[in-house]
Every structure is written in C-alpha cells, then in structure tokens.
Design a protein around this nucleic acid. Structure first.
Lengths: 205, 205, 205, 205
DNA sequence: TATGAATGAGGGTTCATTCAT
DNA sequence: TATGAATGAACCCTCATTCAT
C-alpha cells in the first residue's frame, strides 16, 4: 500500500489546532468528530493521539492557544487607551475591541465560549470545574480590563457602575449575533452609540 | 414478560416533550441521548418513534411547544403596556419581560437558543434552513414586539433607533448569563437601569 | 436496508455466553474480539452491550455460568464417593473427576483458568483482585473437596499429606495437556495409576 | 531536535530481548505492546523493526534465547546425575531441576509457555505450526531428558512407565503455581517427596 | 544505528433507529 | 399504545508498522 507523501517542514500539531478551532466552532464539541478535524487539517486521524491525549484535550489546547493570541491583542488595545482623553476614551476603546474581536479567529473563539456557556454539561467530557472555568477566560479577561479602565472614572462619577462581567459578556454575545443574525453589524451598533454623542454615560457601564 | 401498567390519563407524548426540553438544555442536542430523555420521562425508549419521527423531531417539537407558551405570556405583557405612560413604560416593560423569561421553563428555552446560535452546524441534524430559523423564533418574536412598541416613540424622538433584534438577543444572553455567571442577577441589572432613571433613552434600543 | 429475520424464541444472552466461552478459550481474552464472539453466536455486535457492560463483563459472566455447572457435577461426584471403600475410593474418585472435566465445556473452562493463572496482568482489564480470584474458583473448589475427602484418611495415616490446592492445580494442568499434547490421554494416565494397584498411598495426596 | 547519545558498548538488541521476555510474561503476547517493551528497554519504539521483523518475531527470539540458556543449565544437571546412585538419583534430580527453573528468568519462560499452551490461537499471530511447537521446546526438552534417564531404570523395573511429556508439563505447572498460588512452594513439595522416601516408584513417572 | 513522526486498520463502545409482540 | 430486544453505522481511541532523517 502506498502512503501519502509526508509533508515535511510543516507543523502538524499546529495544523490540527487550527482545524480543531474551526470545526469545534462550527459543529460544537460533541458533534465535531476527529475525522472532521483531521480531514480539514489534512493529516491522519491517529495523529491526534500522538500530539494530544484525547478529543477534549485537543479542544482545550486549541481554545487556549487562540485565546492567548486574542487576549494579547486586547491587552495592547488597553495599553493604548491610557493616553486617550477620558471623555472620548470609552467609545474609542469599544471600537478597537470590536475590531480585534471581529476577526475569523476571534469569532470562532467566541462561538465556542457561547456553546459552553449555554450548557451545564454536568457529566460530560467538558465537565471538570477547572477546565470549564478556563473557557470563560476571555470574557473574564475582558471584564477585568474593562473594570480597571472604568474604576477611576466611576469614582469621578464619569461612568455608571455596572457589572463589568456582564458588559463583557454582552459584548461577546453581540459579536456572535453579528455573525448569525447577519443583519446586525456590531461595528455599526457601536458607531451608532458614538454618533449620538452620549454625553457622559455609556450603554455598557 | 409482563409490561408496565399503562398510566391511563397521562399524556406520554407530553411527558417526553417535558423531559426533552430539560435534557436538551442541560446537555445540548448532540450529547443528549434518547435514553436520557425517555428515562427522565419514565417511558420506553422506543416510544419516541411512535410519537415522533426522529430525535431532531423531538427537539423541534419540544422547543416549539414551550416557545409558544412563553411567547403567549410575552404577548400578554405587551398588551398590558399599551395603557402605560410612555415615559415610564419601557422600564416597566423590561421588568415584566424579565419576570416572564426568568422561569425554569423559559431558561431552558433560552439555553437551547444559545447553543444553536453558537454553532452553524452546516451538515448536522439541525441543519435545514427552515428549522434553524425556527429556533430563533423567540428572539425574533421578542424583537418584533419591541420594535412595534418603540417605533411610534422613536418617530416622536422619545427613543433611540437601535436594532430591536440585537436588543432582544442581548436580553436572552443576559438571562442565560444570570444562570452561568451566578453573580450577575439580571433583575438587579434592569432594576439598576431604572433606578438611574434614564432620562429619555434606554440601554437596549 | 433489509434486516436479518429475528430468531424469536432463542435466548440471545445464552448464545453470547456459549460463544464467548469457546472464543475466549481459543484465543485468550485479549486476542478474542467482540466480532469473533458475536459472529459465532450469530448475533449483532452491539447486542453484547445490551446484555453486558463490557467485554470483560462477558468474560466473567461466561466463566461463572459454566463454572457453576461444572462445580455442581463435581459436587455430585463427591457425594457419591462417601459410600465407597476408602481403599479403592481415591482411584475411583479421580476417574470420575476426570470424566467430568474431560468434556468440551469443562476443557474450555480449564483453558481459561490456565491463561489467567499464567499471567499477572497487573494493569489490564482482568486485574482486579476479586475478579482474578474468582477465576481460580474451580481449582479452589476442587481443592477444598479433595481436602475434605482426604482429611480423615490422612489422620488415619492412609494417605500422605500433600497440598490439596496443588493437587487440584496439577489435575487441571493434566486435563489441558491432554488436549494440547494430544498424545497424553489423562484417562489412560489415571487408569495406569489404578492398574498398578497402589496399595494405600496415592500420587497426589 | 537532538537525539539521545548513543550508548556505545550496549547491545540494544539484547536490551529489547530482556525487556520483551518480562513484558510478555507479565501481560501475555496480545496485551503486551511494543511501547511497553521499548520503554522498559529504554530504546525507541521504531528500533524494534531494525532488529526484528515483527512483534511476533521479538516474541520468538526472546523466548528462544532465554530457553537456550535454561536448557543448557538443565543439560548440565543431567550430566551430573549420571554418577549418582540410581536409588536416590531421581529425588536429587528433581531438586536440581527445580533449582534451575525457580529463577526469575526461567519463571518468565514458564509463564509464557503456560499462556501459549492454554490457547490454541488458530488464526492469531502465533499460530503457525512450527512456531507454536517451538514454544513447547523447553517442556519437550525436559521430557526427553527425563525419558532418557528413566528408560534404563524402567526396564529394570525400578520406575513406573509414565509419559515423560506429561511429567515435564506437570513440573512446569507446579513451578508456575508456586508463584501464583503463593502458598505452595514447589521446593517443599519435592522435599516432601523425598522425605517420604518413596521406596521404588515416584510421583511423576 | 537510532529516532520521532506519521499511517491505517481495527478494537471496544455508543446510540439512533427498527421490529415483533 | 407501549415495550424490550435487536440492529448497524459511526465514534473515539490503540497500536503495529513504516518512513524520512
């Protein structure tokens, strides 16, 4: 039996992770099959178990890797905003966050978070406390950064005190909705917010 | 082999639908098994195929039945608000909507919508265009009613023109988040909105 | 797709157990596949998991059922020997035991015991202490009955005190060897013992 | 990627054979994996196929090498016994044989023989007639030497004519049983034989 | 020689679905 | 109506084996 020529010089592990993220985002964890992932990655099905321990392991590895990438970009945005005028800062911040999150990679990430949040999966493969928590990391991260940003302004009375976690969560929902509803462009939504020139407050707190 | 005594006067079909909604909400469509559902319903596994065509058929039937119930309640709320003072009406409306959606039955419904929205499932069991669309019906319904309510007021300049679909979607997200984040109580969130006495505008639309 | 006609009135569970015993005896636990078993039983491969929890469960169930049958026959032999003359009793007993053990069913049982005894299987599917012990039950049973029979005679000095467990074990070895070596007929061996007319003692104690 | 430094002066082939014998003895042929063997040997998994043709080839090579070693020791014992007094010779012989067989290396060998004898493996990897036969070589060897030793004495009527093959087989069973039953020490068993000073006959033939 | 990466066939197991009763 | 038994396709995963280096 002849075998496929080995594609040397390419990182198969990375290929698997890329394919996994998109397949999991499309199908959900349960419906996604190893075959789906490896076919999209162009590798053999057994190779998954050379690089990973299980299907769930692939899931978490893919999520974590891409989440780190997105979070790094978000951090960069928050660093920049420091120098901005507080009066216009929040609107600018939101626009930049949306720009980061509105990329194929981030959209997939957000989809996955959405699915996980939507189910309790008490006895399933994704049930362990720690791992379930790690899924929420992007939303938590975003929430924490938003909180840090708003805290001083709230003290000054420039912003309303609303749960940052909720705000971050709503933002991720919005992003996903922008893809599934199609007719709702989140950027336009936030643009709209600014055009109205909210005097001091904002919709998300 | 003796058979279980027939529970006369009990609608087995309904038992299945009740069980299905909660199981699907907990596990997601793929992870939920027919066995899970029938065990929770206390009926034989084969009975599903007497009343329904397939697992997916159970899913849609369960969703639709419970969605109709919730939508009827929402409609009642919108009927009542007609008589309210437009100035305080929106805050009152939101509170009532939350009250309707914050019940076990509705929460399960919202969870399921969440899961479905989070995935495109292009080739899966839930893939047909029509059916996928039917899942969004609750959000669409809510969105349409909100739109109808706000339209005249927007014309008068009393409210900002924001996509009603997005607003409805955010509301469902909020409800679900209230269950998974635990520390965020949506009712308190909306209470907060009102306490601030938003002068003319509102956060969602 | 047409399906095979369902053979009603036959006990599929029993068919599986019968097939399992012979397949396990032939191939060993690891090498035996569910496909082997179900094909020999003439049933579908999935049916195993309707009646049993796992492949190992089939193994133990098959072993136990057939072991009980053989042990019952051995008990009957020991009941009969009570009335025999102690002088000729042992030779008679051995002949009868061999007759019981030298049947296809018992031979398969003995083979399986042989395999299990031959391996320590520290981390395998058959490793649990209890279950491993249960495998030895036939040898232990035989050993205990032999001990009970010999004890009074040993006190009188009519027999040599030799470990009964060892004796039982050697007997099972002999039986199996009679099948694999082919040229060694255990019945002839024991016949030989008697023909020599051992005066009072015996070879096995 | 750097590679492990080559351990010069170490025979990797031999390392594999040593590891293979113990792993096969512990797990059995089917349950033992190449990974088990190579990890215990401290070498790369692919190296097996540099020195051997297949897993089965490793099995036979390991068995044969160690069997040759043990058989050489047994031969030495039989050479020595020539000079012994025939009256006490057999007991002495048995004790010496047991001493040879009751070593870790020989025990592993006996275990493997035990497993193979316990199964017919008609279609498995170990099925070829020749190879299956080779497994029995130790028992056959022992049997033949015992036969050669006893033949003249049987002619003189000093010993009973019993199948030597069976006797050898029983001895190996005894040895293994001494490990798995734990409470049966074969050496004590054979000691017992001698202490009783069997007048002319012996227990095994 | 020796290694790590890659392959693919097959294993145990699950589960939606069907059928006889 | 309702049930338990039966089916088969597909899933996740293992592992002997091979290849490039």
């Amino acid at each position: 039996m002849p075998r496929k020529p080995t594609m040397t010089g390419v990182d198969r592990r990375q290929q698997i992770l890329e394919a996994a993220l998109s397949v999991f985002a499309e199908r959900g964890f349960e419906a996604a099959t190893n075959k789906d992932i490896t076919e999209r990655a162009g590798v053999n099905q057994g190779l998954i178990y050379f690089y990973f321990e299980s299907k769930a392991d692939v899931f978490f590895a893919a999520f974590e890797q891409h989440a780190r990438f997105v979070m790094a970009q978000l951090n960069a945005v928050f660093e920049e905003v420091r120098d901005e005028d507080p009066a216009t800062g929040l609107a600018w911040l939101l626009k930049r966050i949306v720009k980061v999150l509105d990329t194929p990679r981030a959209i997939n990430l957000l989809r996955i978070m959405h699915q996980v949040r939507g189910s309790r999966t008490p006895g399933g493969a994704l049930s362990s406390q720690e791992e379930h928590r790690s899924i929420g990391m992007l939303a938590e991260h975003l929430g924490r950064r938003l909180y840090e940003y708003r805290e001083p302004q709230i003290v000054r009375g420039a912003l309303w005190p609303v749960k940052s976690g909720l705000a971050a969560y709503l933002m991720t929902c919005t992003l996903i909705s922008s893809r599934s509803l199609e007719d709702v462009r989140p950027s336009r939504y936030f643009d709209q917010c600014r055009r109205r020139e909210l005097p001091t407050g904002d919709n998300f707190g």
